[in-house]
Simulated scan of single mutants.
Amino acid sequence: MFIYVNGEIVKKEEAVISPFDHGFLYGMGLFETFRVYHGHPFLLDNHITRLNEGLKVLNIEKRFTQDEVCSALMVLLDANGLTNAYIRFNVSAGLGEVGLQVEPYREPNVLIFAKPLPDAGEMAEKKAILLQLKRNTPEGLTRLKSHHYMNNLLAKREIGSSTDVEGIFLTEEGYIAEGIVSNIFWKKGNTVYTPSLATGILNGITRQFTMKAVKTMGMHLEEGLFSMEDVAAAEEIFVTNSIQEIVPISEFEGHTMPGKSGAIVQKLHQLYRESCKTLWSI
């Protein structure tokens, strides 16, 4: 496996950064994960926009363009012999002294990882359970896709290593927030519901795609503060992320759900398939 490190392609065993990188010392770093479908980086423009907005918040003086990212991806994918891939695009602050820095970071480290994925196939169902651990609040005004991942890691330990279960966070106030690695949606009547960003969740790229798709389908979309009872009364539940796509929930806290036989997830899955090899932005 080869990794992209600051413009060079190196074997994974040879990829290194300094221990003085503030991404390591203080968690000052961001990442984006997305899929490449037959050479096309799905919704890349939205991922770049979110990354650039986060870099501004972290005071890292680097902004990326579509051409720059695509050039790096092409070289990395070619080196690994991949056309379908899981991509992690990582930017850490770069070198600094030991101590909290207020000056801008001007030389960040850029690492890109690519892992092979099979051709996109049928939807895979999951069960959803409520986590005992509560969702932490964002470090700043909004949640970034940052190196601060302890809340997620502890939640994953709570549910174990099973790949067919997703843990769902509640906020400290008891509102439904998001999954460990996903955003959550549910349908009741002609309305699709999803938690508001006011709960402190990540504004996922697939979340944004799904919200637009729901409206395109002629359904109502409602963001808000919802309880576990609101979700338990749903007709369909599903979660989303950029690697697993649209994931239907077959069981929620002991309540059997339609899973992949649900009408809404089938329509969304079809729209996703029609878009994933060509769409650059939502």
Rank of each mutant, 00 (worst) to 15 (best):
T206H: 07
F89I: 09
V91D: 04
E103W: 00
L202V: 08
G121C: 12
H220G: 12
V102R: 12
G224M: 14
G27Y: 13
P19S: 01
A155I: 12
E32G: 15
E61D: 03
E158D: 02
T206A: 12
V165S: 05
K115W: 01
F34P: 10
G7C: 02
G224R: 13
E222N: 10
Q244W: 11
G96K: 02
V16K: 15
S146A: 12
R157L: 15
T142H: 06
I159K: 09
Y105M: 08
D119M: 05
S242K: 11
M228W: 06
L30C: 13
R50C: 08
R135M: 15
E172R: 12
E14K: 10
L95D: 09
T194M: 03
A15E: 12
A124S: 14
H38L: 14
L55T: 01
H220W: 00
I201F: 00
Q208F: 00
L44N: 03
K126E: 10
D164L: 03
T49D: 06
K127A: 15
P116F: 04
I17H: 09
L170A: 01
A234C: 02
R35G: 04
E125H: 12
E14R: 07
H255Y: 13
E13M: 02
R273D: 09
F185T: 10
T191D: 04
F89V: 10
I9H: 05
F209D: 07
I9T: 05
F226M: 09
M219C: 02
